[in-house]
Design a protein around this nucleic acid. Structure first.
Lengths: 181, 181
DNA sequence: CAAATCAGTTTTGATTCGATACTATTGGCC
DNA sequence: GGCCAATAGTATCGAATCAAAACTGATTTG
């Protein structure tokens, strides 16, 4: 974990990320979409119901909500996503993938086929959280690593923030309110 | 290395890459640059003298050379890079960072501080090359892992493709002609 | 030496981008 | 209740990106 080594890891992450961007861009072009569209669709496929809003996407992708809002308009027009107004807070609109949008993210996953040894998984997880922590970024992890998550029984989950029950699938998704446990 | 696990690794790489993009975007905005500008500058800081051209950047980043050409024009105008015509092949122009551009890449490296265990390094390397291979991408590795690289003596390197001598620093940079050894 | 290839630029029109200003809703606070 | 700040989201603006295609020149190939 020395400083000399941090640099070397840096280089590999830089190149891995660059390669991933390149593949995503190629995929986007083939689908007749912009890069950011694919980013948005991919995010919507992994975020939970507290995090499917314009602002959350803006936070996750690091772009202004104005830009995101425009792109969302286009994605809705193209029939890839839909937006539904929140019943309680009428300012927020929940975004979700329509079947057409979901099939794009499915093709993306197939198109960029990643392989890695099993040992890599926990290490990548650590790397990710360490980067988030180092850069002072909050949020965007799954319930399983969140301090608000409570598990009153087997396969039963409750979010300590919202006091709501969460399904087994739901707790695997990423949340903007996430705080490391 | 099973299929069930490939998916899990996928998820982590996706999120790691997304986080990295987000940090790069924030950095770009702070520097008054576009995302792609930072990508180009970063690439120029790690590529060797065979790979510092418009076409190579286009291949590495996965964008059309027309787009790259436009961005390069702006970067030159801003005094971040310079271009020098090749003495032999007058079609090609070699691009390089000016001090102003180099300082941006230095700040980028400091800004996105990545930490990881030593064990991660060889695994990331394997992951990277496996993705390149799986996606049928050629090129963009360092001489040290290239089959053209020859080492007639200690700290002495020759490229089997160009028959040119390469310095110790040079062989650490990435090359568009790279082929795995 | 002509044709094909290659490196790079230019042009075009749709779209992104950040910045800013704006509407509408919500929440606090007296 | 009523006022004001905060929040979610959209609209507008000008500069810049983006891919696609057409276009120079230079080089290689046949």
């Amino acid at each position: 974990m020395g400083d000399t080594n941090a640099n070397a890891v840096s280089q590999w992450v830089e190149r891995l990320s660059a390669l991933h961007r390149s593949l995503m861009r190629k995929f986007a072009t083939e689908e007749g979409l912009q890069f950011v569209h694919v980013e948005i669709l991919q995010y919507l496929s992994i975020c939970n119901r507290y995090s499917d809003t314009t602002q959350a996407i803006s936070d996750y992708l690091g772009q202004t909500k104005g830009s995101i809002s425009q792109s969302l308009g286009l994605l809705e027009e193209k029939g890839l996503i839909k937006r539904v107004q929140d019943k309680i807070d009428k300012r927020v609109f929940h975004l979700s993938l329509l079947s057409k949008g979901a099939s794009v993210t499915k093709r993306l996953l197939e198109s960029i086929h990643l392989d890695g040894s099993e040992k890599l998984e926990p290490q990548l997880k650590n790397l990710l959280t360490s980067i988030q922590k180092k850069n002072g970024l909050k949020g965007f992890g799954t319930c399983l690593s969140c301090r608000f998550n409570q598990s009153p029984g087997k396969n039963s989950f409750v979010c300590g923030l919202t006091k709501e029950k969460l399904s087994v699938d739901e707790v695997k998704k990423i949340c903007k309110e996430h705080e490391a446990s």
